[in-house]
Design a protein around this nucleic acid. Structure first.
Lengths: 246, 246
DNA sequence: GTCAATACTTTGTCCTGACAAACTCACATG
DNA sequence: CATGTGAGTTTGTCAGGACAAAGTATTGAC
């Protein structure tokens, strides 16, 4: 097997051993040093060779199994099924996604007010009609072109962003900075035709197809953080996701 | 705590202990006997009370954490954050989804031929251009109305379905029956306007917005099972998914 | 040669034990 | 009163061992 796996693990590091092992395996697979279809060494030998216990090795392998790179079969072994991480849809904002894919997002804040929660958002946020929330309308550009028109409702107790913050950062980054880490979200993805106002804003033709995504996000304590209702230019954007049953 | 948790676990059952524990916890939470926000007993006490080890309890809790029902915090405890499973997008066909949501799907097989693989499918299936595959075109109805127009390419070695099978079952069910269990898939969800032919078939207006989904599915051994390219009536269908970071 | 029984390999489940890290809260100190 | 120190609680990580279950390969009987 590849040499990298032989290097001594760093037991003084705050990074858990199982994660160190998983990272090395992942790197080997991504670089093709363990080819698709090949079986990796069995757990017991791996554990002995790396000087860790079998549960630690199992946890490392499990981590990669959940990411879709490996498959295990009892009585057979553990096999590489895909050379790269098929990362599941992540809980990040469009802004983060654009940055990490090397594009340069720009945000224009069209509206930022405190107002009674719109009906659709009230149900999603699980708050009463009439309660005041921060209402945000943003236009997100990528590569100089408008990409998405985004609406968000945020409970007043969670965050009170200002225009400058919103123009320079993703909403999720602001939330995280304020100590509200999004942990769970439910999304709905659909499509519809652009209204004439939307078409004008997004420089699309009237009636052009738009991707719609609405999302509600909660933090670790189960508190609602935000409701978003966004439309994307279908001609410029699509969602990618990967699934695995385990 | 609720009485159900006291019942003796069945050690002679083939169902793993951790799963028995997880199922009971899930039932209690779904029925509201452990309310949202409430903390469950700590792992060590739970383990002692149920007569299993702490790792077993941890695994049961982990299972529910991954499904978005529970959240753990070191030094604090484990808390209920949502009363029902937020199940992630599952690897099932539209047919199964419709059945499980109580609707009555019907399938019309428009085309079923063996032909050289179309260019878009060749890349996704990771096979060479010119290779022959089974090509299927189906129209899926729900509640008497057309809902989706589905195209699939299937390698000849995987499955050779006939019209009757396709009319009565979902493609994934047929695959599973043939011993090819889909384990991993990558999907892309987008939108576009209907061509006039699509509009006619789906009884939509010309130019109506359609949701598009393309998917490639692999089995446990890493073999490609199918490539699908589908369009859904955006007016009747949307994707729901839930995410959690862990 | 075919087929069934057997041995072997490998992952799955479960146990006990130990210490570390993060959080909460009471209490002492300035 | 504010603050930070420390004890206590709870989850996170890790070890090492044992047996079960599933799949593969070999062997033996017919």
């Amino acid at each position: 097997m590849a040499p990298e796996l032989h290097a001594r693990l760093d037991r003084s590091s705050p990074v858990p051993l199982y994660f160190q092992v998983a990272s090395r395996l992942q790197a080997l697979i991504e670089r093709g040093e363990i080819g698709v279809g090949a079986r990796i060494e069995n757990e017991i030998d791996l554990a002995e060779r790396l000087g860790v216990s079998r549960p630690t090795i199992r946890r490392a392998i499990q981590y990669l199994v959940e990411r879709g790179m490996l498959i295990r079969k009892r009585g057979v072994g553990t096999q590489v099924v895909h050379p790269k991480v098929r990362r599941p849809v992540e809980l990040s904002s469009l802004y983060d996604d654009l940055v990490s894919s090397g594009r340069t997002p720009r945000t224009e804040v069209l509206q930022l007010t405190v107002m009674p929660v719109p009906a659709q958002a009230a149900a999603a946020l699980e708050i009463e009609l009439g309660t005041e929330v921060t209402w945000i309308e943003r236009l997100r550009y990528a590569g100089g072109e408008p990409l998405a028109l985004m609406h968000n409702a945020i409970p007043l107790g969670v965050l009170r962003p200002d225009r400058a913050d919103l123009a320079e950062h993703g909403l999720y980054e602001l939330l995280r900075r304020a100590g509200h880490v999004p942990k769970i979200a439910t999304q709905m993805i659909g499509a519809r035709s652009a209204t004439s106002a939307e078409a004008r804003t997004l420089t699309e033709k009237r009636g052009a197809s738009l991707l719609t995504m609405s999302r509600t996000a909660w933090d670790a304590a189960g508190h609602v953080l935000e409701y978003g209702s966004h439309v994307y230019r279908a001609s410029r954007y699509s969602f990618e996701l990967s699934l695995s049953t385990h």
